[in-house]
Amino acid sequence: MTIFGLKAMLRTAMTATVLGAAWPAAADDLHAKLEYCLTCHGTAGQGYRAYYTMPRLAGQQPKYIENQLRAFVERRRTNPIMANVAHGLSPSMFGALAEHFHALTPPPLGGAPRGQLGLGKHIFDEGLPESNVPACAACHGADAHGQDEIPRLAGQLHDYLTSKLANWTRERGQDRARPDISAIMVPTTHNLTHEQIAAVAAYVSTLK
């Protein structure tokens, strides 16, 4: 054991003691808040079908989750339930929750019809150039895991995705004075037919 190794160990031990004193209350708060979120979003964040379909949060990009929470609070994204939920969160909680959800890895919840998976894969991988629909994979990644503010789609509930894509301009970007990144999806949601939306939603819901 070198003197540097000992010093490093001591520093770690001291840091642990300091954190140990401050951590319990914050950890309890975070734990209680996580449990609250997962009441509706499924015990492992896999999503849950109740009266409303609650989206999968597991594996979601932290930046996307934080952006959406802010959009609910600022009424740029319409959702009465989530507006209340997000209002009750401290800004520091946004990041902590988002990191926790990102780390969850349950398998996809499933339940999608399997008849149009081929069409869904085609739209996801290659888009529909004749209808001005870009390949989803171009932004969301070949594995549909997303990146930064671009959301993960893999394993998302197909019924949730279908309803979001079909209602995009009624739910997203609702503050005309403050346009947000959701504007990127507007043309695509208008250029997809309902059948195409259902097919691509079913396909990505099966991805891990």
């Binding site: 609250y36 009266y51 339930i81 969160l89």
Partner: peptide, 21 residues
């Protein structure tokens, strides 16, 4: 619900008219 007390809104699962599903 009661967000500050971590109580989820009943409506999310039981529906706007408490009709269930």
């Amino acid at each position: 619900g009661i967000p500050e007390a971590n109580v989820a809104a009943c409506l999310a699962c039981h529906g706007p008219n408490a009709q269930g599903i």
